[in-house]
């Protein structure tokens, strides 16, 4: 039995209605729980990026990735271990105002977003353990609301894998078009 570990999967796709559920179904079918999922337009216009964090075995993650890539509207899927990426989450806390809370949040390097007469809203970015630790520390003072985003990540490698892939596709397309027009000429 292979041991489970954390993986960050990035999926690049066309912006098509219903694709999110097609992608998540792949995890459901293999009984893999999604720890976090964020989605937004990528740096390339018209291409959507999903960042999915899962805990599973190396073998399963490879199978899942191939199943996702099989979806017609998915461009490319990459898998990373936590060491290969810089990742961040953002957490917002709405806490009852008091002097001790204000001292605590100052010590924890947070951004204060709003101060009202009876509450403050602060923001902390970091890894899950860090945002979770602040939540625990704030709890005794009364956390009225707490919300945490999914993970976003950029890869440490200097190579821009998606760009390389798209260039490769473009090259193949040009080649096949050239071949097709050759054939037409010879006919």
């Amino acid at each position: 039995m292979e041991t489970e570990q954390e993986y960050i999967i990035t999926v690049f796709s066309e912006n098509k209605v219903g694709l999110l559920s097609q992608i998540t179904t792949v995890f459901t079918c293999r009984n893999v729980n999604i720890e976090s999922l964020t989605t937004s337009e990528s740096a390339l216009q018209g291409i959507h990026k999903f960042t999915i964090v899962v805990r599973t075995t190396p073998e399963t993650v490879q199978k899942v990735v191939r199943q996702i890539e099989k979806k017609i509207d998915v461009l490319k899927t990459f898998v990373y271990t936590p060491e290969e990426v810089v990742q961040q989450e953002i957490a917002l806390y709405k806490v009852t105002r008091s002097n001790s809370v204000e001292q605590l949040v100052r010590r924890h390097n947070v951004r204060i977003l709003e101060i009202d007469t009876d509450y403050i809203v602060v923001e902390k970015t970091g890894h899950k353990e860090e945002t979770q630790q602040l939540f625990r520390l704030l709890q005794p003072y009364g956390v009225q609301q707490f919300v945490r985003s999914g993970t976003v990540a950029v890869i440490k490698s200097r190579r821009e894998l998606l760009n390389e892939y798209l260039e490769e596709l473009e090259k193949l397309r040009r080649e096949s078009e050239a071949a097709a027009s050759e054939t037409e000429k010879s006919n």
Binding site: D73, L75, S176
Partner: peptide
Amino acid sequence: APFHYEKITSIRSY
């Protein structure tokens, strides 16, 4: 609508 048909020979994501 005006009928205009273009056969597909490739899809970027496929």
